[in-house]
Design a protein around this nucleic acid. Structure first.
Lengths: 226, 226
DNA sequence: GTCTATAAACAGATAGAC
DNA sequence: GTCTATCTGTTTATAGAC
């Protein structure tokens, strides 16, 4: 059961504060160093609490890890739901042009989040380490967030291009867009060194966005003509 | 100094055999479980030797890790040099059409290697874990292999599209192609679950290849018309 | 060069005081 | 609920026999 650790706006009990601090610290440390390389002592110190709090709140290190995955899913879900409040049925009636714009907007928002937000590095690192080990946590992240997102984007793609919504090509195309964007976050070291950049700031992000979205539009147009 | 552990064809001394077995076992284990989660006992067992061999041959766990990176670079380099024996000057004189075909061939071979070869999972996992930690090993991998490959592909892209070879757009486009392909290997869990596939076999690889290369061609055509 | 035995450090978990 | 103190197992590194 994903516990609501974020939406509670005003007052948090001392217990909840400790709990949330532990999850945030763990998510960051698990992401940057990996699960095995992160010690519970380290997490407790980063969360400004005691090692025993981990056993008390989560049963142990593994329980804290599970809680991190649940926290990520609940956060990612509200993020996505906020930005696309329309129902699945509403997508069905979109015109080709509107579907294309919706897909472009989807990829654009993904670029802004993955390359522009403060939380992205932790989140992406965490999920990236999970996806390698086909863990229960990954299953949960897929079913709760990634799967539905790809499903929805594939629907937009099929509307935009006119190909069948059940065609495997739609999902492959969508995943290729996702993959492109992730690369610029995950392989940031390669990106910075190849281009001689110091960082991926607003200007760099804009250049990446322009180049990538042009490719997406070209790909949609080409698929439409088949 | 990258030590030649592979090209020696016929006879390997007992010492070299142990050394190579340790590197191969470590590369696989570091990739699949991560550096911290892999114990030297485990590596020694997988390599059918004793723990102390690690200290003897590499000084310790960290030394073995460095040797893995060096081994990867030397292997990747010979792979790339084998498949593109032409000099940099030769690329300069390519026609638009030939440059496009060279780029398509580059992406196609990347798909075949990353999704079809037996070694790819270990290698990709290893490099993926390195790229997160901007380690000395990663610097070496970039300078020895990744950087030059991107440079070369960007040159093909500029020839194929007619844009300036120094334009940042060329490298961004090339990296977007690389990113797409990597996603299908790295996020294989997502790919299989989204598409309901059991594995990425020859037929699946062919479908991915067709879809992705169509996008690459469309992107080149669009950039050419600007 | 390879092995056994062991040292020294560190991990996660837990009992019990407050 | 949070803390201190401690237990038990495991890690890497190393000294020394062969």
């Amino acid at each position: 059961m994903p516990i609501d650790t974020q939406t509670q706006s005003t007052e948090l009990s001392s217990s909840q504060k400790t709990r949330l601090a532990l999850i945030n610290a763990a998510l960051r440390l698990f992401g940057s160093k990996g699960y095995a390389a992160t010690s519970t002592r380290e997490i407790a110190e980063a969360a400004s609490t005691n090692i025993s709090s981990i056993a008390y709140h989560f049963g142990g290190k593994q329980g804290l890890h599970t809680a991190c995955a649940e926290y990520f899913v609940s956060l990612a879900k509200t993020h996505v739901n906020d930005t696309s409040p329309a129902t699945s049925a509403a997508w069905q009636s979109l015109s080709q042009e509107n579907a294309e714009e919706a897909l472009i907007s989807f990829v654009g928002r993904m670029i802004d989040f993955l390359l522009g937000s403060k939380e992205a590095p932790s989140f992406v690192s965490f999920v990236l380490r999970e996806v390698g080990s086909e863990s229960d946590a990954m299953q949960q992240i897929f079913e709760g967030f990634i799967g539905p997102s790809i499903e929805q984007a594939a629907l937009m793609y099929s509307k935009a291009t006119g190909i069948s919504p059940t065609a495997e090509e739609a999902k492959i195309a969508v995943m290729s867009y996702v993959g492109q964007v992730f690369y610029f976050r995950v392989a940031q070291f390669v990106v910075l060194n190849s281009l001689g950049w110091e960082e991926i700031g607003p200007e760099q992000r804009k250049l990446i966005k322009t180049t990538l979205l042009q490719k997406v539009r070209a790909g949609i147009a080409a698929a439409r003509e088949e």
